[in-house]
């Protein structure tokens, strides 16, 4: 099977974003299947962005924010994100779409090893789930 997943990652630039930078500086590799986007705060990522990413063909969406309670630059962005994506996952399940396609990870700034590891894990998991369009068995 020559299908390779592609994923999108939204990283809060104050924590997960810094982790990604540090990963580069420290030459820690992670899967090339993910495209990372820095955002000012994970509390600004809307469920619409995420579902839109799926509609554009993303097989998984990774969201990295600040570990609660005290690390969010905007104080509560991580809680907002948590509530939204926890709910979105429940909703996706009702539509028959695997909630595991969304992965939330929480960081204290430069945890670049954690970032790389969780991304690689996630890519592996998505490989098992198959493409977002379904039909991987055929």
């Amino acid at each position: 099977m020559d299908w390779e997943p592609w994923l999108i990652g939204f990283l809060s630039k104050w924590t997960a974003g810094i982790a990604a930078e540090s990963a580069g500086v420290n030459r820690v590799r992670y899967s090339p299947n993910i495209v990372l986007i820095n955002v000012p705060c994970c509390g600004l990522i809307s469920p619409i962005h995420v579902v839109d990413a799926f509609l554009q063909g993303a097989d998984g969406v990774y969201i990295g924010g600040a570990l609660p309670p005290a690390n969010c630059h905007y104080k509560v962005g991580n809680f907002k994100a948590f509530k939204r994506f926890y709910l979105l996952k429940k909703l996706m399940k009702q539509f028959g779409i695997e909630p595991e396609r969304i992965r939330l990870e929480w960081f204290v700034s430069p945890q670049y090893r954690k970032l790389a590891k969780t991304i690689d894990d996630f890519v592996d998991e998505i490989k098992k789930l198959g493409p977002i369009t379904g039909g991987v068995e055929e």
Binding site: S46, I48, V76, F79, A81, Y86, L87, L88
Partner: peptide, 28 residues
Amino acid sequence: LNMIGSIGSILLKSREVKLLFPGLAKEL
């Protein structure tokens, strides 16, 4: 999806630091 956005903003917002993720999950 828009409604989920709103709920994320206003659900238990004064208590989230106390409830943390597990507490919020329980409510959701």
